[in-house]
Design a protein around this nucleic acid. Sequence first.
DNA 1: TTGAAAGCGATACCAA
DNA 2: TTGGTATCGCTTTCAA
Lengths: 342, 342
Amino acid sequence: MTIYEVARRAGVSISTVSRVLRDSDLVTPDTAARVRQAVADLQFTPNRLGRSLAEGQHAASGIVFPDLVGPYYAEVVLGYEDVASTLGRSVLILTTHGRADAASAVLELAGRVDGMVLFGRTVDDGVVERIAASGLPLVLIARGPVSGVDTVRTRNVETAAELAAHLAAHGFQRVVFLGDPAGSPDVAGRFAGLTNGLLAAGLSAPVPVECAIDLAAGEAAARRLLARRDRPDVVVCANDEVALGVHLAAEAAGLRIPADLAVTGWDDVLAARFAGLTTVRQPMRELGAVAARWLHERISSRVTARNPDRGAAVPVRARRRVLPTQLVVRRSCGLHPPEVET
Amino acid sequence: MTIYEVARRAGVSISTVSRVLRDSDLVTPDTAARVRQAVADLQFTPNRLGRSLAEGQHAASGIVFPDLVGPYYAEVVLGYEDVASTLGRSVLILTTHGRADAASAVLELAGRVDGMVLFGRTVDDGVVERIAASGLPLVLIARGPVSGVDTVRTRNVETAAELAAHLAAHGFQRVVFLGDPAGSPDVAGRFAGLTNGLLAAGLSAPVPVECAIDLAAGEAAARRLLARRDRPDVVVCANDEVALGVHLAAEAAGLRIPADLAVTGWDDVLAARFAGLTTVRQPMRELGAVAARWLHERISSRVTARNPDRGAAVPVRARRRVLPTQLVVRRSCGLHPPEVET
DNA sequence: TTGAAAGCGATACCAA
DNA sequence: TTGGTATCGCTTTCAA
């Protein structure tokens, strides 16, 4: 079923059918009606490929995640999809799963979209630079900046320092950080902020214990940690799921939280509320929404052969935005109110 | 940057470049090397539109959700994306948000993919039938069957009846169901099973109280419910988020769970574990994974002009699969072990 | 083994 | 206001 059959049925040329389809006003109401009738009769839907090829536009954008496990990514997708679809763009998602061929998958995706959003821990900066150099509009989420590319992230360092101050006020001494700072910029920022905060409070730097970002890993790591003679006072976790894993391990070991062990997380997922977990709230949907909006602006202001110069008012230089985060104190970090010196 | 430039640089025709790109063995290793060199030099990536148009294949599939809020959908996407991308298909997602123009958005998506998965509560059967009639491979999730279309769902009725029996054994009398059976087939099944189970146990049918499927709605509904003189013994919720909302409302009202009020949910999200919520576990990832696999089979066995008859062994008749679910008893439904008669 | 050329299904320019 | 036709970038016969 193509535009040719519609044209034949309506007794017009394909040009006219195309015009009617695009709501051009260069068509007599009468002819337009005949064409529309034919379209309805044949239940015709124009083929996107033909259309996109001719227009030089996919009318789609992509978002690349390292992984899709847990509420964090789900919320980001949600915010992204919502905005992107409102802006008339289809959404393609891709998960790299830390696979070795992630780069080729991302490159392949790049060929299907008018622009894309890349999370940290998906592909390395070399790939990002290559794609950026190809002229494809790009927005980065939760990763270090790449020259010339917009970046959105959430505040890690400052809020982690705030958390550290809070913990210091509780009087904790032995602080362990559960997570892999080398694994992601977000985690690195949290670790750095925690370190800063503890040092500023006159305490020693936290001990980092490498741990993957999921409940099972947190639980396993905590099991080992809690069996040690020099059990920590408080375990600061890279995210809530790790913290919830610690929670389970502590429970299994017969330790009470926070009496025997304090725990903190990051993200403020739903479960954190019910576990009474002290954590940091991130505007996850907003992260996706901002990325979608920025990407759209970049795409629609792009100067191409077919789009000589619409001259939208988008800054040429790369934008950076850091969304605010908020410390959420619950019972897992100790009895309250502590004597916080502010 | 097109195949023509690569051809010119390598000193061959575009046919040859295309062959090399497709790894055809009709090319001399020598020529192939020259072409690959040119491809590398120019950092050439073939345009997907041209390719798809020529092949008559998108190499992509879509999945349509009513909404993306909460862990349930996130897990389904995860299972879906994982399988689809492994099978070499890009994934497009679309959320209808109950919008009025959902049908046109879905139809538009249909033009971008080789097949798609449709959740319940997205578009009505008329649209599904129309798309199916157009020949696009389809798989339905969590919705009533449509003639000729594969359907995957999870067990609702039987497990809800099992839950009912468990609650009856606890001795509860006044059972309220929080959720909208008319709103989705899943919820309808849960309500029906609950009713069956209670009646079978000699109790009266549950009272349905309409409520949207989210935490805030559950909390609000519970606030009203708990203020009433004839407060229920147990509130059976359409899903976990509603149940967690009830949890919060009960807490706020100074009621203890389960002593003053029992609550149950559905889905077994992470928070359920930490809230001690009795619920039903659903294989959500598996739901997405099965849908992705079935869709792929339908797509690849489709007989088209370009694919005369690969004759893959896919049944012609529509398949139906009901994935098993599992009752997870925790403390929110009462002190244990109750005297369950089995 | 390679190349020329005919599509694939739209859009849009240029004439009429 | 309409129609003819080149074009988008690639795949794939059909010849050579």
